[in-house]
Design a protein around this nucleic acid. Sequence first.
DNA 1: TTGCGTGCAAAGGTTTTGCATGGCA
DNA 2: TGCCATGCAAAACCTTTGCACGCAA
Lengths: 140, 140
Amino acid sequence: MKNEKNIYKTSQREILLDFLRSHPDEEFSTEEITGALCGEAIGKSTVYRLISKLCEDGDILRTRGAGGKKILYRYIDKAHACDEHFHLKCRNCGKIIHLDCKLMAELEEHIAGEHGFRLDPKSTVINGVCLECEKKENKE
Amino acid sequence: MKNEKNIYKTSQREILLDFLRSHPDEEFSTEEITGALCGEAIGKSTVYRLISKLCEDGDILRTRGAGGKKILYRYIDKAHACDEHFHLKCRNCGKIIHLDCKLMAELEEHIAGEHGFRLDPKSTVINGVCLECEKKENKE
DNA sequence: TTGCGTGCAAAGGTTTTGCATGGCA
DNA sequence: TGCCATGCAAAACCTTTGCACGCAA
């Protein structure tokens, strides 16, 4: 049973969504979002209220930054089933890799069957380092 | 090259570590920690400073709570190689499952080889629902 | 017209910081 | 003794809230 709320299509809502949509695999802090959008088009409290609502509605994802301290937001591309596969995030360059791989489906089954746990890709971001960054790290 | 800091063994540091160690798979907010320890033994700012340092040193892990908003801390049991396997966290009951499974090693290889990405279990918590909670959810 | 959405400013709560003191090594 | 750690209180910061007005449906 979902909350049947009327969602009004306001300019502020569209501006925020456009901003996030136009940077597909990037993650932003509230600071960055308000910095980019406030002052001209949207008030700060509106940004906070919109973010909050978009998270609830599953339009954007709340993650945490490298150190784990900052809270970041990223657009979820429902058309590409981003809520069905895992995302790998490079702790160095921030790149997001969409792990759309049949091995993961097997893993999910295995974990459900053997470990008694149903994975939730939608709310999980797996951390690590991409190979390019790893090479760089080793050279230094 | 690591920061060579002298770490002093103070009573406050021990009290905080003991508190976290004695609740192995539980996660605490700063609020809960200060609530449990401050007033008697440790000052608030000391708790914040200790937490911050312990995170840097890899003694505790910073995660995020259910909604993704609250920041939580959990002790990392180095003796049990908790930084080498993934942790599954039930979004309903909060239970942590230590995923010490050889299939994960294979998965790590696969992802490194095929997807160009080295996973970092230490800083990753995989979300989902444990089967007990899933059953409960379905009954309701 | 209805009632959700917005903006401003104020309130609220959490985390950080400055500084003098305390305590480990 | 030399330095790091601690505690208090103040400052800084970020987020939420109240209220009146605006605007989508």
